[in-house]
Design a protein around this nucleic acid. Structure first.
Lengths: 245, 245
DNA sequence: GTCTATACCCCGATAGAC
DNA sequence: GTCTATCGGGGTATAGAC
């Protein structure tokens, strides 16, 4: 009995995955706005009505794809920071870890590079999460956690730099003091408030660089994209306060 | 006779404008991917077939909207730089114009602010040009000119700074020397090559900041957006080499 | 949980009358 | 230049049999 229940559950899980795979294929072909449950079902050889047992509406499927994409790009970013920082903030690395400042800047660039590499390899899923909002769709709260993972990776690097005294705190105009306090309390209470502002800034700038490349704005403008990006990412590290050796 | 031809021409121009207006309304409601000639015609009270006399296909209408959007955001950017720099590069301002370096940084921030203000006021048209590419649509070459206007405004400011010795030329890694030469030859042969790389970088970063705000990525993260953006834009000015007083 | 059938909507594009 | 009519597709979502 448990085996039957297990088999059924397994079948359901596999079909759910197959639906998402096919949906991703359609995302690439037609874009998120035209993602259609019918077409997914057709391609999978099911009746259009059968798919509603798995996703009760088009928006639920879209949400699943968005969460998957945020998780995937977040995981790409996190895996690039493994050498320099403990993967889970809840299990702080032994403070004996000998990470030097030079390591941290290189690691910052690696995290940026890994994020960019995922985006270039999955342009349509990237567009789903960092491109134009899908008209008529509003992402539920469940997406905010996964959405924060790339930023979390960047923050953990800055935190590590702060711990090892490798962080130059940026200056801040008076008009942003209150905002900085609020932001720091939300995302990194252990860091100087000015760092939160700098992080939000370079966070948006990083995705500006990636989006311009993925969306084609650099076509016939920037050609040596790898070197260009690495240079820009190092600039962002400096801007956020990571200091070189 | 000329008056009849004139009247006909005027009617055609007015209807063309009405079609674009309605299409922009639909852009806001449904997104570019679902822009439909039929729906535009319906809303205008015409038969769906009549609209083909004005735009022979959906893509032609889309192209018209894209060109209009690039022109509008470009004009917004250019009008903010009027005080510091001659509007048309072909008519160089009298070199007596007493623009100081301080003026140029303030003007840079104003250009960024004007660009952002247009984007926030026209989010759907902004998404059309700086968001995800429209699936199945490929922009023709005619869009590249208007697309370069915002960047052109930024370049003209940097050129003015260079002319008045207010530009610090950024350092450049060896891996980017060739790319810098090529890029500079294309967009600003009169400026040091390293400046072209810096310009491309801050250009993408500027739109990263704007896109995050327009597309909602700053929701519940950055609240004091005006001050935050002004601070970031000033940072970009520094990054590109504009030096303060 | 899957199927067929159905109601009711949408689209791009063209033909041919007026 | 505008109309009606039409071709040939597409979609969401539900009802009810198996």
């Amino acid at each position: 009995m448990t085996s039957i229940r297990g088999a059924r559950e397994r079948a359901r899980i596999e079909l759910t995955a197959a639906i998402k795979d096919e949906a991703r294929r359609q995302l690439a072909a037609e874009g998120a706005a035209k993602l259609s449950l019918r077409a997914v079902a057709r391609e999978l050889g099911m009746a259009s009505s059968a798919i509603y047992r798995y996703y009760p509406s088009r928006d639920e499927l879209l949400t699943a794809l968005i969460v998957d994409a945020y998780d995937a790009i977040g995981e790409a970013a996190e895996s690039a920071l493994a050498p320099a920082v403990a993967p889970t903030p809840s299990a702080p690395a032994a403070p004996s870890a000998p990470s030097t400042t030079r390591d941290l800047i290189a690691c910052w660039v690696d995290v940026c590079r890994a994020t960019r590499a995922w985006a270039l390899a999955h342009p349509h899923e990237y567009a789903l999460i960092y491109g134009s909002p899908v008209p008529g769709y509003s992402a539920p709260q469940t997406t905010t956690g996964p959405a924060a993972r790339v930023a979390g990776a960047l923050i953990s690097l800055v935190r590590e730099a702060h711990r090892t005294k490798g962080l130059a705190v940026p200056v801040l105009p008076a008009a942003l003091r209150a905002e900085a306090e609020r932001l720091a309390a939300d995302v990194a209470p252990d860091l100087p408030p000015a760092v939160g502002i700098a992080l939000a800034t370079v966070w948006a700038q990083l995705f500006g660089l990636i989006s311009f490349e993925v969306f084609g704005q650099f076509n016939r403008v920037v050609e040596e994209r790898d070197a260009f990006f690495a240079h820009a990412a190092a600039g962002l590290a400096r801007e956020v306060g990571l200091t070189g050796p």
